[in-house]
Design a protein around this nucleic acid. Structure first.
Lengths: 271, 271
DNA sequence: CGCGTGATTGATATATCTCAATAACGGTGG
DNA sequence: CCACCGTTATTGAGATATATCAATCACGCG
């Protein structure tokens, strides 16, 4: 706790000490040493851990400066905070800075449908551009932080700096591509194995361990996302552990045998 | 047949008379009166039936002209023609002008996975932008036609005409959004009903009948796309017909009771 | 007219859902 | 710090939807 006060004092990190649970939450969400709100503006993105895969990737210092001028960087929010809501007027893109968010919407029967989990460096709200209203809801799954970019200002800036437009197109293209990896014709075992494998690779890309990480998602939400019953998910988690592929305890996921996990994920359609 | 020759003579349509089956193919693919290859260049997009939902939507005459300068318009291809292949170097976007294409790729086991069916006005190849290589394969399901836009030239032109960039962003946003409508937690009956309903609405948007249309997709492909066995699909088609919701014979699909179809599509998850 | 592909039908196996009950956990207040 | 409560996860038994295998049928096309 003392350490945290010191870090805050020197402007390395910033948060409110209003709960005895915040420390563990911060550690879990990998916020520590990654939140530079107190730093000088011109270096915020440059110091960010995920800048290489984020919108500012490949930008010069000048371009970065223009971009940072219009954006709000690294706002910290508690678990369950909602950034935007399905149907609300679209105005800004939100980028995950740390932690994790879930994006969902309600189906015709009012049931929640989880569309994706967003990790640091990923842009949320892209689906709202065409309709000028958000098409999904973003909710923090753990203490998290985000950056916010007003979309119209982004368009203005990008007219002067085409590379920003290009990056945006690439990011959107990647998102369209990523829907390729659909879980539709996989059996439940392959679904879960693939989900874990994909998440693991995404963590790796962000500089976290691919072997062991804190997964702030409830099993209910995983089951919802993968389109299976909660009970089935529980059983299959157990199965994967028995097989020696992964370990999962109190939201700490360990990939024990990555090769095996990959093979299970590729099991052809025994639905 | 005489009528066709006359139409061609007056430059309204263009095609080769090299098969006695082409006439019916043309009618099926809605090519007639929609293929303006022989017209003056400055009017091609303006005369296109789907320009309002296509990339040129909202462009002025000047902007349209710039765009048409760099694109190849309305090339006719036979059934089974491949426009681009998964893994191939990315260079151009392809827009469906008439007919239908399927976009697919192979999974780890070499099995085909159909990702989407592309209708007139829809852009193919967007998933290739980020990797600079196509991430899927495009194959004509019937006699079809397409327009082709070299991507780098499109970027150049759009630097002068921001509205083109904006349209592109909107189109990509829409595609990201459309993945919301995932089939993952639906039962087979709801899946097929939703698929038919969606296709019907897409046809409607393009000026075709929403009640009756030619569907140039094999049941195998529909089953593949929806992630179910071919046999199941056949049975469910029969079931929907028995229920009086749709009729399907020789690739002619008739929506008999749209309200009922919609209700079946919304049946909550009895997988 | 016949061939090959695509579609249908039936019988059986199996994966997954559902319902119901119990267990473990995380957060709250005393 | 501990006991409590609501939420989240686990386990079991039974019901059901869908896959699979195999055979037949229909159709488009030469």
């Amino acid at each position: 706790m003392l350490l945290l006060h010191l870090l805050q004092y020197f402007g390395i990190i910033y948060f409110n000490f209003n709960s005895k649970y915040q420390l563990s939450n911060l550690i879990r969400s990998n916020l520590i040493l990654k939140d530079f709100q107190a730093r000088a503006p011109e270096s915020r993105c440059q110091l960010c851990a995920v800048n290489s895969i984020c919108l500012p990737s490949g930008l010069s210092k000048d371009e970065l400066c223009e971009l940072e001028n219009i954006m709000t960087t690294s706002k910290v929010v508690e678990k369950n905070t909602q950034l935007f809501n399905d149907g609300e007027k679209f105005h800004s893109l939100y980028i995950v800075h740390s932690g994790m968010f879930k994006n969902s919407s309600l189906d015709e029967n009012g049931k929640e449908r989880i569309l994706r989990f967003s990790l640091p460096g990923e842009i949320m709200g892209l689906d709202g551009i065409h309709a000028e209203s958000y098409q999904s809801t973003a909710i923090a799954l753990t203490t998290s932080s985000y950056c916010k970019i007003p979309f119209n200002q982004l368009l203005d800036v990008s007219e002067d700096f085409p590379i920003i437009q290009r990056n945006l197109l690439k990011i959107m293209s990647k998102e369209i591509y990523s829907n390729k990896k659909t879980y539709i014709d996989l059996g439940s075992t392959a679904k879960l194995a693939l989900f874990i494998f994909n998440i693991s690779q995404r963590f790796k890309k962000r500089g976290y361990s691919e072997k062991e990480f804190y997964l702030p998602i409830s099993q209910r939400d995983i089951a919802n996302y993968l389109g299976m019953a909660e009970e089935t998910l529980s059983r299959i988690f157990k199965k994967l552990q028995k097989l020696g592929a992964v370990n999962y305890k109190k939201h700490i996921l360990t990939v024990v045998n990555q090769q095996q996990l990959k093979e299970i994920a590729q099991l052809s359609s025994p639905k």
